[in-house]
């Protein structure tokens, strides 16, 4: 992962966030060029910039509060340095543990959850390809047995990535699919199992209970091994993503976020609020529909891209 990060990932990342960056950059540039503007007004407008990026009112206020403190303490923070300071506050807020090295125990398990339409299946396809490229033996579990043609969709991704897939028929018990996949992984000596799940709104009690059961099976069957549960979030989503993260965290052992669709104009600022309030770090970002459009998250690049 380290060497990948230095071989052109950041330019790609920057490209993905170009649109967002341009918008925000323009605004920040304008703000900072008005050097003689009264300070409270500038801070208020920077706060608006954050709100427009879906950071949310609470976290935006907090970030600007910290910025204000630093400006008060260091009179040298003016003009361009305000931007740098804001960037470092954002970076610090996003700072979290990176992706775990999957070799430590085998087979490791990644459970992928989220609401409908965020890009779980696509992300799994990309994740499988990523591990396959690293020479791992990957098994995917088609445990979205609910949505029409979800299994077929995952099969196509499995073929593209060249990885094996465990499936039952549509409508069958997703927990049973996961159980079988974990047994198969042991038998076939796989390095990693990635489990797809049906999209579910976090306020649907029965569906969340089903997820709890799946997590329980994984915790039992893969005890002592590396277990990750990734919540997939659509960068286009607003403040509701916070409610999603809260509820999915309550039900499963969320260890990180995959932030998808950052190749649009959405800024995905809600991950700041989520990290700040729930301490869930972003692990990957999705930048398109291609097989290689999934990148490990880099807080510095994100902060840089965020404010131009």
């Amino acid at each position: 992962m380290q060497e990948e990060r230095h071989s052109g990932l950041i330019p790609r990342f920057m490209e993905g966030l170009r649109k967002s960056r341009e918008d925000i950059k323009k605004k920040v540039d304008l703000l900072l060029s008005l050097g003689n503007k009264p300070e409270p007004e500038m801070l208020e407008e920077l706060e608006e910039v954050l709100i427009t990026a879906d950071v949310g009112v609470g976290t935006s206020l907090e970030i600007i509060g910290v910025l204000n403190e630093r400006i008060k303490q260091d009179k040298g923070i003016v003009g361009e340095r305000v931007r740098e300071e804001l960037k470092s506050i954002i970076r610090e807020m996003l700072d979290g543990e990176g992706v775990k090295n999957i070799l430590e125990g085998r087979p490791s398990v990644i459970l992928v959850v989220g609401v409908n339409g965020v890009g779980k299946t696509t992300s799994i396809g990309k994740l499988a390809a990523l591990y396959k490229r690293k020479g791992k033996r990957v098994l995917i579990a088609a445990a979205d047995t609910f949505r029409a043609a979800a299994i077929e969709q995952l099969e196509v991704w499995g073929q593209r990535a060249g990885v094996e897939l465990i499936k039952h028929s549509e409508g069958s018990d997703p927990a049973a699919v996961v159980f079988d996949a974990l047994s198969a992984a042991r038998a076939r000596n796989a390095d990693i199992v990635i489990c797809d799940t049906a999209g579910r709104l976090h306020n649907k009690k029965n569906l969340m209970e089903e997820l709890k059961k799946i997590q329980r099976i994984i915790n039992r069957e893969a005890e002592g091994r590396i277990r990750e549960t990734y919540l997939v979030l659509d960068a286009t989503t607003g403040q509701n993503a916070l409610a999603q993260a809260k509820m999915f965290k309550e039900i499963t052992d969320i260890t990180g976020i995959i932030l998808t669709k950052l190749d649009g104009t959405a800024k995905g600022g809600i991950v700041l609020a989520i990290k700040n309030e729930l301490d869930i770090p972003v692990k990957y970002i999705g930048l398109g529909e291609g097989m290689e459009d999934l990148q490990p998250f880099d807080g510095k690049a994100f902060a840089d891209a965020f404010l131009g």
């Binding site: 427009t52 990026a53 879906d54 659509d234 286009t236 607003g238 959405a266 809600i270």
Partner: peptide, 12 residues
Amino acid sequence: VDSMTGQDAVNV
């Protein structure tokens, strides 16, 4: 349009 869309809804 997804009703959960954030600020970007206007751009889209």
